[in-house]
Nucleic acid binder design. Structure first.
Length: 511
RNA sequence: GGCCGGUUCGUCUAUCGGUUAGGACAGCCCCCUUUCACGGGGCAAAGACGGGUUCGAUUCCCGUACCGGCUACCA
């Protein structure tokens, strides 16, 4: 990147605290973070809470928690502090008004006294009504009204908003780091509101003022913001000068897996996969939307899969750790086109991370799920061992429960239907003998010797060991899954194994 | 409607004018495995369309189509 050595890279993520953080949001955070860390810069979290009507309690904490879970910790934020605070826009209110006034004085903005009701009425009447240079003179504002009238309205404390005075037919050009040159004709854009009648800025004013004050050097945001770029460029030009403006990059959107359009929370509900990073409970409806974390994703996998949605390093490598991503990341390799989200591929990333994660690390993450399933773990090292045995058959952390519960408690549901068709008296006799051996004799307790013992016993009884393997497995785990049978016997006590066989024999005799 | 953006296998993508258009997920088949997985091997699957430029276009340019985003005193 062409940032000069004397200018510290500073980027920001600026969400509005209105609910859970979805995939697209976290990916925006990720790209900001990767870019900042790659250039030893700073990553700032700024809360855009300028719309009180949409404020949701707990959402800010949720955002902080999500970033912490992902390992994308901000250098500056409302709670981490920093030299450029406050980091909540609601606490910066006075600053915006000052800049709005400056724009009015310079003729780049004006007071507008039209009420929301009046505007609604007009929009109802004229379908595509735009408040712009073509219509502004017929509206109630400081451009159309005599100065004395404006002064009167102001002195009477008439509610007003401040609108940008879009110049006519001016070409606005900027260089998007991902898309290249993007041009706009100002005559096509309307007079956006900069300051609302409650004195709060809209996003259009707030981003510019805050990015300037916080010395942001690179601004990354979703592609949905591209159309409002001309507004921001104009405010930058009139307030601080274009040479001060951060470099922009508009990130591609994350799309619905089926059909088209931006991925939304509803798609997750509909298609059965998470969209939010972590569980989010709406304080008003008390409804909980599940997140990737609770679904059983590793943060490493979540970050990895997000990075690959719109970026790659040009090789066939797909598994990247956060440090490697920082090293390899480059904006030039971010795509222009949106990507449809594929939950199957997402799970594959998680499986890859489970396979390569340390068993003790996984044990820590999985323990809460066992607790929730009311499976007691007496010996932590035993869990670690079990995880090593079953990890490669788990895509999600939650899979560890069904995949390994039988190591801790005997199955109660047993798939006898899979045993019955080939079940006969000689086999029953064999297992009765096996119970006797396991319960009363000294049987070796390592997998290899257990297998040898099993086969010898079978042969002695004139049976093929292979015909006994499936029934044995089902007796031990309850179904057709799990690691090698003798690895299982070796880990549960032979006495326990004897009990399980007996339990199943009883079931079978009743059929 | 207008403005802006986008377009390679079903999906995520590689390709910096010359390739049998590569990889991964999903699918199918085989091997390994007396379960389920892991692993190994294989099959099938793509340049939206039409014009240029060029000895040569997936790649560069233009147009068309299609998809998306925006068009609030929301971000």
């Amino acid at each position: 990147m062409e940032n000069s050595a004397d200018q510290m890279v500073r980027v920001r993520f600026a969400p509005s605290p209105t609910g859970g953080l979805h995939l697209g949001g976290v990916r925006t955070v990720l790209f900001n973070y990767l870019f900042a860390k790659k250039y030893n810069g700073q990553f700032i979290l700024r809360i855009e809470d300028t719309d009180q009507s949409r404020f949701v309690a707990g959402a800010e904490q949720y955002i902080l928690d999500t970033l912490a879970w992902c390992g994308l910790t901000p250098d500056e934020s409302p709670i981490h502090g920093g030299a450029y605070g406050p980091y909540r826009q609601s606490e910066r209110k006075p600053m915006y008004k000052q800049y709005a006034s400056q724009l009015i004085e310079q003729g780049n903005a004006y007071y507008a006294f039209d009420s929301s009701e009046e505007l609604d009425a007009i929009r109802k009447e004229i379908p595509n009504f735009q408040y712009n240079r073509a219509t502004r003179m017929s509206m109630k504002n400081s451009m159309s009204l005599p100065a004395a009238e404006v002064a009167r309205l102001l002195s009477e404390n008439t509610p007003y908003v401040v609108r940008i005075n879009m110049p006519d037919a001016e070409e606005l050009v900027f260089e998007d780091l991902i898309r290249g040159e993007v041009k706009f004709d100002t005559s096509m854009v309307d007079d956006k509101v900069l300051l609302k009648n409650d004195g709060m800025p809209t996003y259009h004013l707030a981003v510019v003022v805050d990015d300037f004050l916080m010395k942001i050097t690179h601004a990354f945001r979703g592609e949905e913001w591209l159309p409002s770029a001309p507004v921001h460029i104009l405010v930058w030009k009139n307030l601080f000068g274009l040479d001060q403006m951060p470099k922009w990059a508009h990130l591609p959107l994350i799309l619905k897996p089926d059909g088209n359009g931006k991925l939304s929370k509803r798609d997750g509900d509909r298609l059965g996969f998470p969209v939010f990073a972590m569980d989010w409970t709406d304080p008003n409806s008390n409804e909980t939307t599940t997140g990737f974390k609770e679904r059983g994703f590793l943060p490493e996998a979540f970050v990895n899969l997000l990075a690959m949605l719109g970026w790659n390093d040009g090789t066939d490598q797909e598994i990247f750790s956060l440090p490697t991503l920082i090293e390899k990341f480059s904006l030039e390799r971010v795509h222009k086109g949106g990507a449809k989200f594929d939950y199957e591929k997402a799970k594959w990333f998680n499986q890859e991370w489970i396979k390569q994660s340390d068993n003790a690390y996984l044990a820590n993450l999985v323990a809460p799920y066992f607790e929730a399933a009311k499976i007691e773990i007496h010996e932590p090292s035993y869990l670690v061992k079990v995880i090593g045995l079953v990890k490669e058959r788990c895509q999600l952390l939650t899979d560890f429960i069904p995949q390994s519960a039988f190591f801790f408690t005997a199955p109660t549901e047993v798939d006898t239907a899979s045993i019955l068709p080939k079940w006969d008296a000689p086999k029953a006799a064999f297992f009765t003998a096996l119970i006797d051996a396991y319960a009363h004799q000294a049987v070796p307790n390592d997998a290899t010797n257990l297998e040898a013992h099993f086969k010898t016993l079978a042969t002695e009884q004139g049976l093929k060991p292979g015909d006994l393997m499936l029934p044995f497995r089902i007796m031990l785990v309850g179904g057709k899954f799990g690691p090698g049978v003798f690895d299982i016997v070796a880990n549960i006590e032979t006495k326990d194994a004897a009990n399980r066989i007996q339990y199943c024999l009883d079931l079978l005799s009743k059929k």
